[in-house]
C-alpha cells in the first residue's frame, strides 16, 4: 500500500475484508452479518461514502458486500 489511499478505495477494501470473514460463516446470513458489522462500527460519514460509491456503480465491491451495502442503505433510508 502506498502513502495515501483514496478514501473510497480504502472503504471498499475495508468492506471487502469484512465480507471475507462473514462469507464463509455457515450459520446465519453472511450478507446480514456484513451489514450489521458496518452499521455497528462505521461512523455515518463512512457509511454515506460507501452508499455514494455504490450509487456510482460500486466498483470493486465483492458481491455479498455489494448486497450488504445495498441492504443497509435501504434500511437506513426507511429508518
Amino acid at each position: 500500500m502506498s502513502g495515501h489511499m483514496a478514501f473510497d478505495d480504502k472503504l471498499v477494501m475495508m468492506a471487502n475484508q469484512i465480507g471475507k470473514f462473514f462469507t464463509p460463516q455457515r450459520q446465519g446470513d453472511p450478507v446480514a452479518g456484513i451489514a450489521t458489522h458496518i452499521r455497528k462500527f462505521w461512523d455515518p460519514r463512512m457509511r454515506a461514502a460507501i452508499y455514494a460509491h455504490l450509487d456510482q456503480g460500486g466498483a470493486g465491491l465483492d458481491e455479498p458486500v455489494r448486497q450488504a451495502v445495498a441492504r443497509l442503505k435501504q434500511a437506513e433510508a426507511h429508518h
Binding site: 500500500m1 480504502k10 475495508m14 475484508q17 469484512i18 471475507k20 470473514f21 462500527f41
Partner: peptide, 10 residues
C-alpha cells in the same frame, strides 16, 4: 508500516 488493518477493528 502500512495502513492495512484488521478487518473487524482497523
Amino acid at each position: 508500516t502500512t495502513d492495512f488493518s484488521d478487518w473487524a477493528t482497523n
